[in-house]
């Protein structure tokens, strides 16, 4: 059983199609990347999954059925628009938000205490939230997302406005949650962050799913006819079977002529007695795939 199944959801705001027949499924215990540029319809899709918005058509199934009040308590959500009550003490704010997720107040207080210690916010617990730095507030927000030990975590733009240290901390946390068996949806336009973490992705553009599947499979599908070569000596300006040589820092990308394969190029390099240190298939980055897709070469799935 899939943890989340999104089936052909559509949502219009006025005349604008925010989401148009988007479908995807999220399996238990995976990190799923919901990708797309700003304004692609990611947040609207998330809000429909969370039952904040009702779709105009299509259905969503969460933990085996429609969303209920009880299921809401099993979800941890970190929205893109981060915010906490500014005028009340940190601990009270976090405990209140935790009790809204169905925790008893004593439990909430204990777990919030544990997280505050872990995130080194312990000494700030009695301070008003507005007195905390932005980074501290981000951490506090993460506590709100995780404190009730959710089965599903949905994080919208998890790395926006985070410094490298905190970015790493969030990545570690997400991996830790996955190891615990939590299903995670990561919603972002920062493709390179997803490459490290996500098992599968859906790419949304202009409200429609343009790519969907496992990250490896997608990248292989978009393999460019090119290899990356690092040689001990300079490569000649032209090589047979290679239509273009793009020199990069300490390696070069060799793009084949039509009909040639990586194997052909390797044989040719060996024949030419070129000493090779590194030879690998040039897998495209998600950024490159994304650009290809939105420029009209997507597979439309």
């Amino acid at each position: 059983m899939n943890t989340i199944s999104v089936d052909s959801i559509t949502k219009k705001f006025g005349e604008i199609h925010a989401v148009d027949k988007v479908s995807f499924e999220v399996s238990p215990g995976e990190i799923f990347g919901l990708l797309g540029p700003n304004g692609a319809g990611k947040t609207t899709s998330i809000r429909i999954i969370l039952d904040i918005f009702k779709p105009d058509s299509g259905t969503v199934s969460v933990l085996g059925g429609p969303m209920t009040e009880e299921k809401k308590n099993k979800i941890g959500y970190l929205p893109e628009e981060r915010g906490l009550y500014q005028e009340i003490p940190l601990e009270r704010c976090l405990v209140y938000l935790a009790t809204l997720k169905g925790l008893e107040e004593t439990d909430a207080r204990q777990r919030v205490g544990e997280y505050l210690e872990r995130f080194e916010l312990d000494q700030w617990r009695k301070k008003k939230v507005k007195e905390l730095s932005k980074g501290m507030q981000q951490k506090a927000q993460l506590i709100t997302t995780l404190v009730h030990r959710p089965e599903i975590v949905i994080i919208d733009e998890p790395f926006s406005a985070l410094d490298p240290v905190n970015t790493q901390m969030v990545k570690d946390l997400l991996c830790e949650e996955r190891d615990r068996g939590t299903t995670i949806i990561m919603c972002t336009h920062q493709m390179h962050q997803v490459e490290e973490l996500a098992d599968r992705i859906a790419l949304i553009n202009k409200g429609q799913t343009v790519l969907y599947g496992s990250l490896d499979e997608i990248r292989r599908r978009y393999v460019a006819d090119a290899v990356i070569v690092r040689a001990l000596q300079d490569l000649p300006a032209s090589l047979p079977g290679v239509r273009e040589i793009i020199k990069q820092n300490n390696h070069a990308m060799l793009k084949f002529e039509p009909g040639k394969t990586a194997q052909d190029v390797l044989q040719m390099l060996v024949q030419k007695n070129i000493s090779i240190e590194q030879f690998e298939i040039a897998l495209p980055t998600l950024d490159e795939i994304f650009i290809q897709v939105v420029q009209g070469k997507g597979d439309g799935r």
Binding site: L50, I52, E69, K72, N73, I75, Y77, P79, E81, R82, G83, L84, Y85, Q86, L97, L100, K101, T144
Partner: peptide, 13 residues
């Protein structure tokens, strides 16, 4: 203004 609304929406109606 504090942008807590969205979190609240996922917890209460």
């Amino acid at each position: 203004q504090n942008r807590v609304m969205e979190i609240l929406m996922t917890s209460v109606t």
